[in-house]
Design a protein around this nucleic acid. Sequence first.
DNA 1: GTTCCAGCTCAAGTCGGCTTGAGGTCAAGG
DNA 2: CCTTGACCTCAAGCCGACTTGAGCTGGAAC
Lengths: 142, 142
Amino acid sequence: MDLDIGEVARRSGLPVSALRYYEEKGLIAPNGRRGLRRQYDAGVMQRLALIALGRNAGFSLDEIGRLIPAGPGDAPALDRKMLAARADELTSTIQELTVLRDALRHTAACRAPSHAECPTFMAALSHPGRIAPFRGKRKLTK
Amino acid sequence: MDLDIGEVARRSGLPVSALRYYEEKGLIAPNGRRGLRRQYDAGVMQRLALIALGRNAGFSLDEIGRLIPAGPGDAPALDRKMLAARADELTSTIQELTVLRDALRHTAACRAPSHAECPTFMAALSHPGRIAPFRGKRKLTK
DNA sequence: GTTCCAGCTCAAGTCGGCTTGAGGTCAAGG
DNA sequence: CCTTGACCTCAAGCCGACTTGAGCTGGAAC
């Protein structure tokens, strides 16, 4: 029992335009068509979940495409190396965010007359190498 | 002893084009000009550090502009409420990323013949509400 | 049999954060 | 004097991930 694109949109929370876009990018594909209409089988939902997972992990759609080629017989074949690498990156991202959050929290709470006089704040400011933005493609996710 | 834009670029790691762009957005301003050339005082470095901090925390340049108006006498006046709110958001972002990283790591290591047979993987997939992308402006930072 | 609705295609637009390019200015050095 | 190099302005372009709009189709309901 196949699903109309609208139904997939409803179930996934993604706009139909995004679904068509994903198709264009080769991330999903309808089972076939009924007339003009794309018909999806229920498995697409899992694939979308997987894509979302990837997006949340900071992969671009192109990377996701490389990461989860539709394996033969529909089980996505994941690239374990890429996953492990991203896991490591996430670890350092998490680390940075944690430092940042603590600094933010402290700064918000700190009652020094001027932030310039708060050592925690100043320490966060002079944290080495933090001025130039990440040059990576990490995005998380908009 | 004032700095040329090129010197600021060198010290901060930011391209000059980005510095001019920041100026256009009202985030930094030269001390004055010598001929046509912008001259910055050393304090700009701290301000850039602050901006970088904000970007890393996921604020847009516009938000940063609102967050750190150049206080009277050059000490930036931070909006403590906004900071606290973002700290809370960071906490949940961190939480999500941690779950994700663990799932990734596990998936990479897992030797089940197909990922479909790995319960950890499947659990990550069906984690509720994770399909639709965040609609916020969070970006982290590119 | 016409009015709808959901779907279709293709091209163009949007947004943030810059970058790039063309063309101009200016001080210092050979 | 003329070149070089660092800077200047302004307009346009770029990237990813979609969205929007115009104009079309095809089945179903009245």
